[in-house]
Every structure is written in structure tokens, then in C-alpha cells.
Design a protein around this nucleic acid. Structure first.
Lengths: 253, 253
DNA sequence: GTTTGTGAAGTTATTCACAGCG
DNA sequence: CGCTGTGAATAACTTCACAAAC
């Protein structure tokens, strides 16, 4: 069995760039699959191919965690995975509260994100009397008004907002008040939160509109153009990348 | 009524930076609300406050579309909105196909993204016999195997993948084969698509894991830490921004 | 021979700071 | 005056290219 030397384990002290952080989960998922299928080592080239990114980007990303590849050989999948898990804090269980259990909230509650390690649904909230007191799996849905009482003494690390936009700021305020450390907002609203509270957005409308922009550039024609007529297409363009998953690879413009 | 001069309308010929493109939908949404509530003008400072970004970023972003502010005064909300809509291609209707109508797919199909201008659900697909032939609103759900037949002659501009990860690549292949110009992937998989097809990702697991990383840095403690013990917290850090909505503003670390 | 890890170069994005216009 | 629009400065990120390690 391969054993890392002390020098190889030592993680960089410096900051890990944001762009790198947002790619680590991609590598993590790929490594999980490689380990599952019995692959023991992987080169930056191979990993880059699977993640659809440049190989030197993979090497630089991994170098921020430490230097645990073997030259001429590659990375040991199982060990690399454990280092990424540790960097991402997946060696803990982060309690998550979800507010809003319509289709989206239910989809989130049942998504693979919560069945894998690292996260745990701690509490659910809605205002619909038809939903309150029902369960999703083992977790009962409470009324939003009981949020403070339910989370008292054990505030969730992450609050997920899956409500209509109109109430998103109110929900955010309540979650912050309850002591939640970070918010993941699916509602189509820009939110204001106090300094120190992390805030990220996932927004379908924005994704669609960004696609619309690049489709127009590609010269794609929108059907049933409403209004004054169709603008001329602009020259093709490379696609900006999404939530930071992967830079444009061979498969993308 | 205010009428723009020719000089003010002329859009820049140069490329609009990707980072700007991903912020335009945010400005668009805010302007929509300002227009709706009867606000006639807005300064870059005000708009920046609402979007939680730096004011000079707003001015630079808007300057890529042309120069239609009035010095000493600000921007005319209704006119600015129309220019952003045009830049984003929202003056057309992009037909969208959604594959996978579990909770997530249904949430997407019913989301405000499709009730507003610019997008139209053209077709829906699933493989579940219990769903095929049922409707969501006026649109019937077809079997995935009928995708080629249903979209023949009128390929959707955008394909939305809301299936389990295991079948996402197959669905992507079918959509591309059918002539779809861009893909929005909600499945937790990296996809390969031919050059020329736009591809964006929305991934809950990644968002959660990125939050986990920054929570750890903040010194937040995960409950019930599994495994060998809790790593020491790292110094606080600024939060990277998500799908490119907004740079860290006053409300965010 | 092969592949990592990393300085250096190149590219893109953000912020500053102020001239110029209404 | 106030506020836009934009060059110039800074910062962040990506890619190149190669010496060092196995």
C-alpha cells in the first residue's frame, strides 16, 4: 500500500482561489466514481479529460491543497479524494434547513446532494397548512413561524431558500436571525444579509437569459420574435462558464 | 416623453465580457421591478445598491451596451430595460425542451422563468409511463424515445436536463442529435457535447460543497463530525460569487 | 520515458479616479 | 454641482512551458 510522506501531505498555507474552490467538487465527484470502479491512480491529463478542463488547471488546483502526486505516475485516487474531502469540509456533517417545500424544495430535499456525505437535512419549513406536520423522509415540516423555536440552540449551518421571490428576503432575515451561517438562495431575488453570512445564488431565469445572449450571438433564431423584428446575429463567441464547474473544454464552443 | 438621440443608442461593437453578461439578467430583473413601481430614472449608485455590486461595475457593464445615461441625472429605467432585453435576446421567444419531469423538472416548468417574456416551453419528455401523456399546463409530456419525432423540423433552442445523473449524457446526446443549440444541465454530471453547443451547469451538490468550504474557513463547526476529528478553522475569507450574479456587496463578507 | 509542480506570461475582470457633460 | 463613461491601475485567473522527480 502506498503511504504518503510528510512532505507530500503538507497543505499550502496560502488562500485557495475561489475559482479553484468551485472546481474541487467536480474533481471530488469524478474521483468518487473512479474509486468506486476500482481505478487506483489517475493523471492530471485523465482527470482533466473527465472534468472537461485544461490539465495544467487541474495540476495547479490540486497544488493548492498540497503536493501529493507522483511524477511519472499520477495521483492515487483514494488518497486524493480524501484530501479534497478534507479541504471541502466534507469530513463533517453540516446541518441544513430548507424553507419552502413546493416542487423545488422537495426536489432539493430528495436530491443526491443530501444522501451523500457532508450534509444532513436538519429541519424543514413552509407556511402551507397542507404541508406543515407532514414529513419528507424522517423529517417533519414545521411552520415558518416556528423557525426560531425549532432551531434554537442548534442553528443550521446552511439555510436553503426555495420560496417565491416575494418572501425570500423575509425568510433570509429569519434564517440569519436564527444564527444560520450561510444561505443558498433559489428565489429570483437579490438578497441583503449582514457581513459574515455567506450567500450564494442559484437562479434558473439568469441561466436561461445568459443562454439567450449566447444563442443570439451564435445566430440562432428565436421563433415567433415578438415586437419590432429580429436583430442580426453577432459573430460566434466562446461560452462563459456557469457556476465555475469547468472552463470551456473540447466539447464546448 | 424622453427620446434617445442616435449617439446614445449606438451599441459598442466590441465583445461583451462574460462576467458582464452574467450580471445583465440581474439588472434586468431590478429594472423590471423599478419600471413596475413607476420609478423613471435610476443612478448607477442606486442600481448598484439594489444589485449588491460596485457602482463602477454597473457603469462599465452598461457601457458595453452603449452609452445611454444622462450625466448628472442617471439612466431612464424603461429605456435601459429595453436595451438590456435586446442585448439578452429577450425580444425573441426561445423554445425550450425539458427532459425529466420529477419534482425538479416540474418545479422548473412552473417557475417564473417561463412565465415571463423570452422563453416558451415547447416540449416535455420523460420515460415514466405514469407521466407520459399527462400535461403540465397546456403542454403534453412525450416519451423520451419520441424526442426526435416530436422536435423534427423545429428543434428547441434550449434543452434542459433534469434527469438523474446516470442518464444525463444519453439525454444530452439525444438533444444535440435533435438539433438543440444549448443545454442547461441540472444533473450532477460533467457532460461532453460537440463544439458549437453551449453548455451550462446548475448543480446543488457543488453549491453545498462550496459553502462547506467557506463555512470551514469561517470556523463554523460541523455537527457530528464523522471520522478522525475536526480540523482547525482557517482565517475568514471573502465569498466567491455563484453563478456570476453579483460581486460581494456590503451584505456579504 | 512519463508526469508533476510551478514560475512566468498572457488573459480577463474589477476597481480606482477623474475628465467631461448636462 | 452630480453623475456618467472610461482610461489606467490592480487583482484574479488561466495557460504555457519546462526543470525536477520518479
Amino acid at each position: 500500500m502506498w503511504v504518503p510522506s510528510a512532505a507530500m501531505v503538507a497543505p499550502r498555507q496560502g488562500r485557495i482561489p475561489d475559482a479553484t474552490v468551485s472546481r474541487l467538487p467536480v474533481y471530488q465527484r469524478i474521483l468518487l466514481e473512479l474509486v468506486r470502479t476500482g481505478v487506483e491512480t489517475v493523471s492530471s491529463e485523465k482527470l482533466a479529460g473527465l472534468a472537461m478542463v485544461n490539465a495544467s488547471k487541474v495540476r495547479k488546483d490540486l497544488s493548492y491543497l498540497g503536493s501529493f502526486g507522483t511524477r511519472g505516475w499520477g495521483y492515487e485516487t483514494r488518497y486524493l479524494l480524501s484530501r479534497i474531502d478534507e479541504a471541502l469540509g466534507l469530513d463533517r456533517d453540516w446541518p441544513v434547513a430548507i424553507v419552502g417545500l413546493g416542487n423545488l424544495g422537495r426536489a432539493l430535499a430528495n436530491s443526491p446532494g443530501f444522501t451523500s456525505r457532508g450534509f444532513r437535512i436538519a429541519s424543514l419549513f413552509d407556511v402551507d397548512p397542507g404541508l406543515v406536520s407532514t414529513r419528507i423522509g424522517p423529517v417533519v415540516i414545521h411552520h415558518l413561524d416556528d423557525l426560531a423555536a425549532v432551531t434554537a440552540g442548534d442553528p443550521p449551518a446552511i439555510g436553503v431558500i426555495a420560496t417565491p421571490g416575494a418572501v425570500a428576503q423575509d425568510v433570509a432575515d429569519r434564517l440569519v436571525e436564527a444564527g444560520v451561517g450561510s444561505l443558498l438562495n433559489f428565489a429570483p431575488r437579490v438578497l441583503a444579509v449582514p457581513a459574515g453570512v455567506l450567500l450564494r445564488y442559484v437562479d434558473l431565469s439568469i441561466e436561461l437569459q445568459v443562454m439567450s445572449f449566447y444563442l443570439r450571438r451564435k445566430g440562432h433564431r428565436g421563433l415567433e420574435a415578438s415586437g419590432e423584428g429580429t436583430a442580426p446575429p453577432e459573430p460566434p463567441v466562446a461560452l462563459a462558464h456557469p457556476i465555475g464547474i469547468a472552463a470551456p473544454g473540447p466539447g464546448e464552443v
